[in-house]
Amino acid sequence: MKSSVITFPGSNCDRDMDVALKKFGFKNKMVWHADSELPKSDLVVLPGGFSYGDYLRCGSMASKSKIMQSVINFANSGGIVMGICNGFQILVETGLVPGVLLRNKYLEFICKNVFVKIKDKKNKYFKNVDKEVFEFHIAHNEGNYFCTNDQLKEIEDNNQIAINYCDENGKIVDQFNPNGSIKNIAGVFNKEKNVLGMMPHPERMIDTSLSGEDGSLFFKNLINNLK
């Protein structure tokens, strides 16, 4: 399986993602934002970080970079595109996934482990996964998911909500909503579910002695689903 991780000026989780993808069997290539052609890929990842210093709106500048037209074409032709954290912010700015990510409700940068519940398994990312609740890491200032009422109805009707923040038993309650996101939304799909944007970092949970192994489960499952 071939993957590509796009590096934007200010990306800082691109190499972590490279390590994670290689650990679970992907042949990964790093792709520079100013390139126009995407290498042949089974998976394209927009990594976390602070592309363009979060100027204007997080992800807004990166969403217009040269490589993104190829990423958009790849996504529109059914390619698997995953955006993590700043990558999610870039995805919403391209319009590939609905909604926006606002400043966290309590105006603080949040850096901690959270639990998320898998909302939908009829997709390449979570199909066959043998777990309902994952422990992932979040580190963001703008992760407060927001969309219009019409968009919310649409994503609910199409089962586009991928994961919700929850407690360790999978209970989706306000108390475990770290950033004020509507309905505890931590990740959403596009309509066709080949594009996933999510705030949590699975690549930070791939080592039992350093963090946890829920990220390992996620990547192992993903590569199996793509084979």
Binding site: L56, R57, S60, K64, E93, G99, V100, L102, F146, T148
Partner: peptide, 8 residues
Amino acid sequence: KLLANLVI
């Protein structure tokens, strides 16, 4: 196209 995000 850039300066505003019309969702918000």
